[in-house]
């Protein structure tokens, strides 16, 4: 593991940067609090209209779903297409290329560095929100919790891989903000971040099941709730792993061919 020391060091440095930009981080955090509270009131209204269970979820389960989604959304908030695109377009990646480091692993280290802090803040806020709204469903079985942790880790890798792949469009386009927004919109729908996928009409749910995004929120959240039977859970986490690793490798391939094919601008 000696070769990974450098990436650990870079991850640590990027965690430190979060503290430099603590004002920005705090504003982001406050924004996300408003968002999760709004989601809670929205879904509370829906559930109050239909006392008991709505489809497959009870209200405590739905609350748990929202909290889990909130926590999963709280990681890697500083890694986006816009920043990577700017680095590519303005030729800053040249600096990285002149170093004995792997470009993708460096990006991964930098994206992961802040996770302990992001996670700690999200857990604290999540606990307060959950308390205020009368508690959430806890995993019925410790095995669910363990599987959830695996699934959540895969969800984070998947998020990185997707953003990394999408960022590579910076080699061909300058409109990274549009690209980033488009990815966010598609992700919010098909990951189940806005509405659990079970509430989708069949055709839309079918589409979601062949896309990688469900692995970002839906799969770990359902694993937490123990909403899927054993084989289904294994299949879904396996699918998640295949997407996460597949896209990670695909990103490497994209980067390599892009670097070969395209000039590094600026200078």
């Amino acid at each position: 593991m000696r070769g990974f020391n450098k990436y650990f060091a870079m991850a640590k440095a990027s965690l430190e940067v979060i503290f430099v930009y603590r004002a920005g981080f705090t504003v982001n955090l406050i924004g996300s609090v408003f968002y999760v509270v709004a989601m809670f009131y929205l879904w509370q209204t829906i559930f109050l209209g239909k006392p008991g269970a709505l489809g497959v979820f009870t209200w405590p389960e739905m609350k748990a779903y929202l909290i889990v989604a909130f926590i999963l959304n709280s990681t890697m908030t500083w890694f986006d297409e816009w920043q990577m695109g700017a680095d590519i377009r303005e030729g800053r990646v040249a600096t990285d290329l002149a170093r004995p480091i792997d470009f993708q692993l460096k990006r991964f280290a930098e994206a992961s560095g802040p996770i302990p802090f992001e996670l700690a803040s999200a857990l604290a806020i999540g606990a307060v929100v959950a308390f205020v709204f009368g508690g959430i469903a806890l995993p019925a079985d410790p095995a669910h919790l363990a599987l959830f942790i695996v699934s959540a880790a895969l969800a984070t890798l998947l998020k990185f891989s997707i953003i990394y792949c999408v960022s590579m469009t910076a080699f061909w386009t300058t409109g990274m903000e549009g690209v980033s927004n488009a990815r966010m919109a598609v992700q919010n729908i098909f990951s189940g971040a806005l509405i659990p996928l079970v509430f989708f009409p069949d055709w839309l749910r079918g589409l979601a099941s062949v896309l990688p995004f469900q692995g970002m929120i839906s799969t770990p959240a359902l694993t937490y709730l123990g909403a899927m039977d054993g084989p289904t859970t294994a299949f879904m986490i396996g699918t998640q792993a295949v997407w996460a690793l597949g896209l990670f490798l695909f990103g490497r391939l994209l980067w390599r061919s892009a670097v070969k094919a395209v000039t590094i601008n600026g200078g």
């Binding site: 450098k6 870079m10 440095a13 600096t95 170093r99």
Partner: peptide, 28 residues
């Protein structure tokens, strides 16, 4: 070693000494 006059290789947001420490780790 590469130095670009128009572009820094230091980490922008952290103290200079920590960039040096990162170089130590990167180049082992």
């Amino acid at each position: 070693g590469v130095v670009f006059g128009q572009r820094t290789t230091l980490w922008w947001d952290i103290p200079v000494i920590e960039s040096f420490n990162l170089a130590r780790d990167m180049y082992e």
